[in-house]
Design a protein around this nucleic acid. Structure first.
Length: 220
DNA sequence: CGTGTTTGACCAGCGC
DNA sequence: GCGCTGGTCAAACACG
């Protein structure tokens, strides 16, 4: 279960990128940590200049693996225990009400951080149709960003993959999507465009922590 | 009626 | 220790 190397485990590599005509995606590999800033650093301009090329064709994708450095993950990551606990239906007979905290938060679990992957898309819509079903469970206004961050969870039973969607205040055409966890079920509906992306994403995530070197392979 | 969204409150981690 | 911020819960609500 700790196999979080691949973001979209169920992304069947059936689609051959070669035949796909939707080559309007640009993949950029951001080196590890805060290259892709989800916080309040202004260094994101560098990437936004790339985005500023504004090829009117398609969305621009910028993939990054968020490193779990203690600081960032500490404030950014949530206690996985809560997610895991609620991943299953709460109707379980063993769900003792005495066990749950009044506020529903569970503590005492060790903090185990899952790798998270983020990529930027230049798109009009916030939600990319990646083939999975997501249920929104929260929305929060974050600092230094006039757009709220939305929290989604995969609705598939037992699949506790989460994603965050946030639009950049600096460039409101850019949407940052952060995935956390791995789907434990096949994709629900095919999406050729996105499967193309997923294929690339697997290449990224499969490399572990540094995937900036093979980015030359991406652009075709 | 089932499913998904909205929204205010709560909680934990971190910095000061 | 306190306040801030991000992440999550869950009841109410909306929609097909």
């Amino acid at each position: 279960m700790e196999n979080y190397h691949m973001l979209f485990g169920a992304a069947t590599a059936a689609t051959q990128p070669s035949s796909s005509t939707s080559n309007s995606y640009n993949f950029l590999a951001a080196g590890g940590t805060s290259g892709l800033q989800l916080r309040d650093h202004d260094r994101g301009r560098q990437q936004q200049q790339q985005a500023g090329h504004n090829h009117s064709g398609g969305p621009l994708f910028l993939a990054a693996e968020l490193s779990n450095s203690s600081k960032d993950a500490g404030s950014g990551a949530s206690p996985p225990a809560a997610a895991a606990g609620h991943g299953e239906t709460s109707a379980g007979p063993g769900a003792a009400e005495a066990d749950r905290a009044p506020a529903g938060k569970r503590k005492g679990e060790k903090k185990e951080r899952r790798p998270r992957y983020a990529f930027q898309t230049r798109s009009q819509v916030d939600i990319l149709d990646d083939g999975y079903r997501w249920r929104k469970y929260g929305q929060k206004a974050v600092k230094n960003n006039k757009f709220p961050r939305s929290y989604y969870r995969c609705t598939h039973q037992g699949c506790n993959v989460k994603k965050q969607v946030q639009r950049l205040s600096r460039d409101e055409a850019v949407v940052v999507t952060t995935y956390e966890g791995t789907h434990t079920h096949p994709i629900e509906k095919s999406n050729d465009n996105f499967e193309h992306i997923l294929t690339q994403m697997q290449i990224y995530s499969g490399m572990g922590s540094n995937f900036s070197s093979s980015s030359h392979n991406m652009f075709h």
